[in-house]
Design a protein around this nucleic acid. Structure first.
Length: 367
DNA sequence: CATGCGTGGCT
DNA sequence: TAGCCAAGCAT
């Protein structure tokens, strides 16, 4: 028995009618919605992957002001794109956007692909994003499933299984396919997401004011709080690290992170992991690690500040150290490294922790 | 199918 | 505070 198929034609027409009416009154007005420009829809959709609307808005505004169209983006250096993305997370999104902009300008004269399979072939665009662009920008009847609609569909259907499982995904996409109309599919999909985001919320859904309450299986069973089923999260791992700002004539040594590392392509103070406390022996071992990595001899390593910082499944205690250059020539075998003046920090994409440390180091000494 | 990839806001 | 959550994708 298939839940999606069991959703009756009557329910379907009620859903469409009530949702359209609700959207006319309660739909959100977001900066990327007005024009229907595929470039803007694309940028916003990539930014919105696993990222809240509130976090995205200022980044989107800045990004569009600097890169108003595909060609401007294609002509920019990658480092500048990453700089504007700094703080938003999931930086492969920025690298993919830039790479794709160059490819589209070079290979199709800046024409944005309009078909689902072409969109799906672009890096960083999966099933959801392809459906979103196809429906929002090109008025194609493509289904979508993402966090908001996933929750909404699960509750409407009363689906008690795991929505992330293969079975759950098959069911949800089948349902989305059944829902999406041929008339104004983009507006309809946005209405689904807005309802999920503002009414059918994760905790305390506002069922009494939901336009779909009469056809919602979860609500009728009073099970909206148990659906969708919670997913297990992986446990946090504690990590201790040190990053060292080596000073040489008013400049600091920065290292560009390698492709296979987290924060690939972004600049960072040389960073090391260790297990024990930050005692005298540790500091001397850190100086040794620094020498091995950079070829540089430094002295007077001292703690400036300790930052607690979580990233994915790691809780990092990061000891920020400063040190004085003594001797040696820079070895760039491991990764690119440079002596950077505080003024240049503004133009480089830094890791979040490096940015915090940099602000601390340059506070008062400059500008 | 599980995991890596980031960060900030909310409860 | 610690955990949950957010317009996912690639491998």
């Amino acid at each position: 028995m298939d839940l999606a198929a069991a959703f009756s034609a009557d329910k379907l027409s009620i859903l469409r009618r009530n949702l359209r009416r609700w959207y006319g009154k309660h739909g959100r007005h977001l900066p990327w919605r007005a024009a229907g420009d595929p470039y803007r829809v694309w940028i916003s959709e990539i930014m919105l992957q696993q990222t809240t609307v509130t976090a995205v808005i200022p980044y989107y505004e800045r990004f569009l002001a600097r890169f108003p169209d595909l060609q401007t983006l294609a002509e920019a250096p990658e480092q500048e794109v990453l700089r504007l993305w700094e703080g938003l997370g999931y930086y492969s999104r920025a690298r993919n956007i830039h790479k794709t902009a160059r490819k589209l300008c070079h290979e199709r004269g800046g024409n944005f692909p309009r078909h689902l399979d072409e969109l799906l072939a672009l890096p960083g665009i999966g099933r959801y994003t392809a459906g979103a662009i196809a429906s929002f920008a090109f008025n194609q009847s493509a289904p979508i499933v993402e966090a908001n609609t996933l929750r909404l569909y699960c509750r409407l259907l009363g689906y008690e299984g795991d929505p992330r499982s293969t079975e759950g995904q098959r069911l949800l996409w089948e349902f989305a396919e059944r829902l999406v109309p041929s008339q104004k599919p983009g507006e309809f999909n946005q209405a689904l997401m807005d309802l999920g985001a503002t009414v059918c919320t994760p905790t305390e859904p506002k069922c009494p004011s939901c336009p779909l309450r009469s056809i919602c299986h979860a609500f009728q069973q009073g099970r909206q709080h148990e659906i969708p089923r919670l997913v297990k999260r992986v446990a946090m791992t504690e990590v201790t690290e040190a990053s060292v700002a080596v000073r040489k004539q008013g400049t600091f040594l920065l290292r560009q992170r390698r492709d296979e590392e987290r924060w690939a392509g972004m600049w960072d103070f040389p960073r090391f992991e260790f297990d024990d406390d930050l005692n005298k022996a540790t500091l001397s071992r850190l100086a040794q690690s620094l020498r091995k990595l950079t070829g540089i001899e430094a002295r007077e390593l001292q703690r400036v500040e300790t930052i607690r910082h979580t990233v994915t499944r790691y809780r990092i205690t990061l000891h920020c150290l400063s040190a004085e250059f003594v001797s040696g020539r820079l070895l760039c075998k491991d990764s690119p490294m440079k002596w950077i003046s505080p003024r240049q920090f503004e133009d480089l994409a830094l890791s979040m922790t490096a940015r915090k440390f940099a602000r601390l180091l340059t506070k008062g000494t400059n500008q």
